[in-house]
């Protein structure tokens, strides 16, 4: 089955690219494990603070491991005409993108689960009370962020600019989820930031309330699919 083939390829390439692994695995996992451990040991109300910061860092994992990684991978493959080569096979456009998105999302889910287990033992952050709900929102969030990353490549003119172009998204996701510490925000901004897909996932994990976050994610998924359909570029810009 071709989707499985592109999925396997996407997964293999994810772990093969050493330079990217540092950015999209080592850094976010380091933050998602390191900050809760730090909070646990240096603050008075250690466990509560560690738990809060861990939930926030899920936004960073989503922004980097899912979003940034797929933006960098797809723009460089687009610019090197690898996507074009893939399109010269029997694969449909949908299979090529879905395989890549599923591959990136799977790695992101795996890393978030790994971090959840690690901070349980290293920082006493309790396991989520509703494991199924947690898993569902993490899977949905990883898939939506990967999809949005694929859509976002249309805005990135050249592969070299991919990381720079994703930086604002990363900062926005981190700040709005509270992963960058308590930053005073104007009151009107809060509800807007709550609509970010990363914040939706963090809210769901934090409160256990799934309905609103899932609606927010569904909205982003529809927007992402539409954007991919309308604007995704398979080849570098002719200039």
């Amino acid at each position: 089955m071709s989707l499985a083939a592109t999925y396997r390829l996407g997964t293999r390439l994810f772990w093969r690219d050493k330079a990217m692994l540092f950015g999209s695995v080592v850094t976010p996992v380091g933050l998602a494990v390191g900050m809760p451990v730090l909070m646990r040991h240096v603050t008075q109300d250690g466990v509560a603070n560690a738990t809060a910061i861990f939930h926030s860092t899920i936004a960073i994992l989503l922004a980097i491991t899912a979003f940034m990684n797929i933006v960098v991978a797809l723009t460089s493959r687009r610019d090197q005409l690898v996507l074009k080569r893939l399109r010269s096979t029997r694969l449909t456009d949908g299979q090529i993108l879905a395989g890549q998105i599923a591959g990136t999302a799977t790695q992101t889910v795996g890393l978030i689960l790994l971090c959840a287990v690690t901070v349980r033992f290293a920082a006493d952050v309790p396991f989520p009370p509703d494991p199924l709900g947690f898993a569902a929102v993490v899977v949905a969030g990883s898939a939506v962020l990967s999809l949005l990353g694929a859509a976002y490549t249309a805005a990135v003119p050249r592969a070299e600019l991919a990381a720079a172009y994703t930086m604002p998204v990363f900062l926005l996701a981190g700040v709005s989820a509270g992963a960058m510490g308590p930053i005073p925000l104007p009151s009107w901004l809060r509800p807007v930031l709550d609509l970010l897909p990363t914040t939706a996932v963090v809210d769901a994990v934090r409160t256990g309330d799934l309905l609103v976050p899932f609606l927010v994610l569904a909205g982003w998924a529809v927007a992402g699919l539409a954007a991919v359909r309308l604007w995704f570029r398979w080849e570098p810009r002719r200039s």
Partner: peptide, 9 residues
Amino acid sequence: LQEAGFFPE
């Protein structure tokens, strides 16, 4: 194709 990339790794 006249020019198309591979996965270098």
